[in-house]
Amino acid sequence: MNDLDFYLVCRFYIYKSFYLLFLKPIRDSSIKSLSDEFVVRSCNGSGDKFKMERYADFLAEILKKAEDKDFLDKLEIEYTKLLIGPHKLIAPPWQSVYDGKDETLFTDCTLNVRAKYAKCGLKVTKYLSEADDHLAFELNFMLYLAGVINENAGRRYEAINDSVEFLDDNLLSWVNRFAELLGSCDGIYLKQAAFYLKEFLQNDRKFLNSILRA
């Protein structure tokens, strides 16, 4: 495996870890995936491109503490409070909230994201009840594209272009604000995860653009 292929594989597993963190609270079902040696090696072995070593340490500490059921319960309470409700959310996890002025869901922004998924033959399983521009779904789309980049040489550059476009038009248009708002909240892991996500997305964009310019 050459250096480029190595970094492309690393970014797949880093995206996978962030997707799992923001999809739902950390529970037994996700601990195994987050502890995967490929996630750990991807974070620690790609520091010159993605600078994820501190994120790897953070993740390892959280997962070690997650061996305790009471700690897992605290993680679930935090996720529910900050990303589900029932009270008004300080940092809503939907792009459309940040795209408009009235924090409305299921807007043209949501439909545009849905169209990008559909272009690749994808559809959110909960599309009738959960907006397509939820952070976890947008990360899952990047994860899907990362898989195409790694597994389909004929579509590699098309998928890289789609990834850069999605970062520019979607994730990077609102995740910085999302992370900033979460940063004002008390919590064990979500605000830290959002900070590392913001850093990773910015570095990933630089990395993908360097491939396109080569």
Rank of each mutant, 00 (worst) to 15 (best):
R41D: 03
Q95Y: 01
L59W: 00
D28V: 06
F178G: 11
G154T: 11
L145W: 05
D168Y: 05
Y19T: 12
D48K: 15
L89I: 01
T80Q: 08
N203V: 02
L128D: 11
F22K: 15
K116E: 06
D132A: 02
G154E: 04
E130A: 03
S35E: 05
I84A: 04
S35P: 07
L83S: 08
A60R: 13
L208W: 05
A194L: 03
I31L: 03
P25M: 01
S173C: 06
I211W: 02
L181K: 14
D36I: 03
L181N: 13
A193I: 09
F18L: 05
R41A: 05
Q192F: 00
G100V: 06
C120R: 15
M142F: 02
E67P: 02
C185T: 12
K64T: 14
F137C: 13
P92R: 15
N203D: 07
D68I: 06
L8W: 05
L72W: 04
L212G: 07
F178E: 06
E151S: 11
E138Q: 03
K191Y: 01
L89C: 07
A214H: 14
R155D: 04
G187I: 01
E151L: 08
K81I: 00
F12R: 15
K88S: 00
T125L: 03
F50Y: 11
R114D: 00
F166P: 08
D99E: 07
N2K: 13
S29N: 12
Y189E: 07
L63F: 02
K116I: 06
K65H: 09
D162R: 13
L75G: 08
F137S: 15
S163Q: 15
F141G: 12
L172C: 04
Y98H: 15
R177L: 05
E151G: 10
K64W: 02
E138L: 01
I77G: 09
S46G: 10
C109I: 06
Y196C: 07
K51P: 08
L139D: 07
K116G: 05
K116M: 03
L63K: 14
K126P: 02
I77K: 13
F178A: 10
L72F: 00
Y15Q: 14
L89K: 13
Q95K: 15
F71M: 10
T80Y: 02
S96C: 02
N203Q: 09
E103D: 07
K74Y: 02
L190T: 13
I62V: 10
L59H: 11
N140R: 14
A131V: 05
L212Y: 03
S29V: 08
K32W: 01
L21N: 11
A56G: 09
S29W: 05
E199Y: 03
M142L: 07
A194M: 01
C109G: 13
F200H: 14
L171C: 04
N150I: 08
Y117D: 00
C10N: 12
G154K: 13
D99T: 14
T107G: 06
S46T: 10
T104W: 00
F12E: 13
K88I: 00
A60L: 02
A131G: 04
L128K: 15
L83M: 07
S30H: 11
A131W: 00
